[in-house]
Design a protein around this nucleic acid. Structure first.
Lengths: 171, 171
DNA sequence: CACAATCACTACTCCACAAGTAGGGAATAA
DNA sequence: TTATTCCCTACTTGTGGAGTAGTGATTGTG
């Protein structure tokens, strides 16, 4: 569940490429697509919303390409994800277009608070990491198979649990 | 982005109905579907995985129906969501079926750590709330339009931010 | 200038999957 | 023995994600 789209995944990877090349002049979409093994034509569609969000700048013509509009340390993953996929909105009543009164459960809704918290937590997680963090040397080479992760996270099948705190942040 | 499926939404609402009726004998699917305005035939499909996950018990025949298998306070939202939609896995390398070596970016992947953290944070959020929490009297009648929520969460367009703590848990 | 390179934009196809429908058992109380 | 309800499988349908295609607009270079 909560799988991110290929679109967002491509977009994030493209942005990390641009972050790595920050300060070295523009990078062409073809180059990025080649390095990251993604269809160039599709990547082109992702560049548009990123540019409109003010995250990247395009330059046309020979020796053109894209480059980050800002320092990688000031570009959060959240801003990238929202540019590509819109705001986090697990349920309809948490979208921006939602008009109050549409949902007949609105009064006395038992779960809205939960989804609202979900949105908050996800936004915070995304906004607390920047492109610079992702490209930091220490991040690389640290692939962790799920078997080791589940010791930290909860196993999918054990259910009974009391509310837990956040724990220390390790990123 | 990160919209939950209608399936999960239906399932969660059905579970809250069962939680409210906990101890009062079984509730029929037709009754739940009627109260929550969802197609009964579809709800039937959701009951199966919930039963197999040990969350609810079915009883056939006249005066049959479903009831929670455990106290609502011991049923986390996470267990419900996972039963309906499988484990949280934003990217493929965080699924349980993932075989190490499939992703060619595995060595030196810049973003795996981020998605792993995302999964952790979501799992924790879901596992820190129970059906009893959702059905607590204080929860009801507290609908909050997004316009008020965004003062707490981050606005979609402001990006620069340092890592933030979790803050107090309010659910 | 001509031309190649590259972004910028729109429209279209294709297909997997979510959402919902249909129908036929099997168990159980009255 | 009948109505009721869960249990299970198979099918249909619509939508949106993923990707392709084609046509400008702009810009550096020979």
């Amino acid at each position: 569940m909560l799988q991110v789209s290929e679109r967002a995944h491509y977009g994030l990877r493209a942005m990390t490429e641009l972050a790595k090349a920050y300060g070295d002049g523009p990078l062409t979409l073809n180059k990025i697509a080649e390095v990251e093994h993604m269809p160039a034509g599709y990547l082109e569609q992702l560049a548009m919303p990123l540019r409109r969000a003010g995250l990247i700048e395009g330059r046309r013509g020979a020796h053109g390409g894209y480059q980050l509009a800002r320092d990688p340390a000031s570009v959060t993953i959240g801003s990238i994800m929202r540019a590509l996929e819109g705001p986090v909105a697990p349920v309809e009543c948490l979208t921006e277009q939602y008009v109050v009164g549409t949902c007949e459960r609105e009064i006395g809704c038992a779960s809205q608070g939960f989804w609202q918290r979900m949105k908050l937590v996800v936004d915070q997680a995304m906004d607390s990491v920047t492109l610079a963090d992702l490209c930091a040397p220490g991040m690389n080479g640290a692939f962790i198979p799920l078997s080791q992760i589940t010791q930290v996270s909860r196993s999918p099948s054990d259910d009974v649990c009391a509310p837990v705190g956040m724990g220390e942040q390790t990123i």
